[in-house]
Amino acid sequence: MTEVTMTVNGESVTKDIPDNTLMTGFLRDVLKLTGTHVGCDTSQCGACVIHLDGSPVKACSIFALECDGADITTIEGMADPDGTLHPVQRAFRDYHGLQCGFCTPGMVMTASAMLDHTPKPTEDEVREHLEGNLCRCTGYHNIVRAIMAASGQEVAGSAAE
């Protein structure tokens, strides 16, 4: 067991954990933040994406001890404390960017990290950026539209229409 301290969604947490604890286990089992989903556990699906010091990482592929001293944001930290949704979350709702919702936390975290450094992406850039996030329900078009809308850009009709 080793002690780890990090900031999660603005709050400092310190815990004693087994050395081989992954961030998915730390967030879900220790902190009970179950919004970070585990789809594949093999770094293929992106359902577990969180922000580590502002950059996207797959929580299933990083040990909690590697995050010692880091600033972590999970899907639970995206909305304001009063419940006002983050613009990306709002756009997913408005543009029907989710169906079952399983991939959604990872999609929102990946998309918001992209918009932080590319505030006005092209549709191609959005699609390229979602390379590591799989969705089994939506066919992606509405996810892409939602992200374009969240960036304040005109939303074209989807290619499927």
Partner: peptide, 9 residues
């Protein structure tokens, strides 16, 4: 290489 999350690490 890979995707944005893979490239971070």
């Amino acid at each position: 290489i890979g995707d944005a999350a893979v490239r971070t690490r």
